[in-house]
Design a protein around this nucleic acid. Structure first.
Lengths: 177, 177
DNA sequence: CTAGCACGGTTCGGTGAATGAACTAACATG
DNA sequence: CATGTTAGTTCATTCACCGAACCGTGCTAG
């Protein structure tokens, strides 16, 4: 495997985690799910991932219990993929990694900033709301575009939807306009 | 690449981060460096990683500015790899991911627990010290074995050293006994 | 002086995963 | 009936990982 399963016998929490979310694309699928992406086609359009790989990753994440596959219409049969509570708790490491990246790899400042909806405060790098002092679950967070976000790169529906403030986990709208 | 470079044009902080630390083994190398592992042979012994891959990963991490290669003796010439400040700041996401793993993937409880050295308190999942309320830099942290840590798996020097409390970033002792 | 050894690599052939393009299948729309 | 949408699977090619063997430097034992 590319990045993959069996880091055998590492006896290390990080290695176990990487067996689940360490393969190429997997963490980006999870992040998209956090943004509210739910349908196969939306993942595919947003990530430019080969369909075979996406199919395999979604199946693996369902198998691992991070995503739940749910039928949302019967004719034609269509399923959506939703984060389970276990998957949602990846919010903390995902945010921490994204903020590390924005601090050290982004030339033009952060591409997205996260706000704590109940109090409106922007999250600091630890995802502790500095106003109310509590740890912030993903359900209470809103993403907004940051100064480093380009508008000329991706033009797919999901990218477009994320250029406007968006509540985390809320579904991406079907069509804009 | 297995898990790799170019997630082109993702315009996403997480994707940029994964271009640097998303390849197979890379994050485990960083975690080992956080534990105080510094020498090629120690990484190799602890991770059971092919030498060619380790060599390439270390070079890439030096290139990316997360590790610094430093000559520590001249005869014979020997270099060690040290985390730069940028690399050290991966502490937050690495800890968050490890704690997610210990919460959801570990059958016997956490394999390692982390304590804030100045006040002795165990770190909660956000790496905010609940006693003093501050964010905790890696320099102030000590690892101790947790209830889920097996003693029968790895027998290399690094694993042995980590079965006893150990200050993060402090070098692994040359030999034990 | 020479033989062996430790360390830190590089080289190489085989394997398996990722990739992009083409194909399938179910159903809706006009 | 022809076309389009969605969610896949299949297939050939490419590329990264893997383990084993090899290389070069300098130390050490005899």
């Amino acid at each position: 495997m590319a990045l993959g399963k069996n880091y055998d016998g590492q006896d290390c929490a990080l290695a176990s985690a990487l067996e689940v979310i360490g393969e190429r694309w997997t963490l980006l699928v999870i992040r998209d799910a956090m943004y509210g992406v739910r349908r196969f086609g939306d993942f595919q359009a947003h990530l430019d991932i080969p369909r075979a790989v996406l199919s395999q990753r979604l199946a693996a994440l369902v198998e691992a219990g991070l995503l739940e596959r749910r039928r949302y219409q019967d004719a034609p049969p269509r399923d959506e993929y939703l984060l389970t509570p276990v998957g949602r708790e990846l919010w903390q490491p995902v945010l921490a990694l994204g903020q590390w990246s924005d601090r050290h790899l982004a030339a033009n400042g952060p591409r997205r900033v996260f706000h704590h909806v109940p109090c409106g405060t922007r999250l600091d790098p630890l995802s502790v709301c500095c106003t109310c002092g509590r740890s912030v679950p993903i359900e209470e967070v809103e993403v907004r575009p940051g100064p480093g976000l380009g508008t000329d790169t991706r033009q797919d529906q999901v990218s477009l939807a994320l250029r406007t403030p968006h509540r985390m986990l809320a579904p991406i709208p079907d069509k804009i306009g």
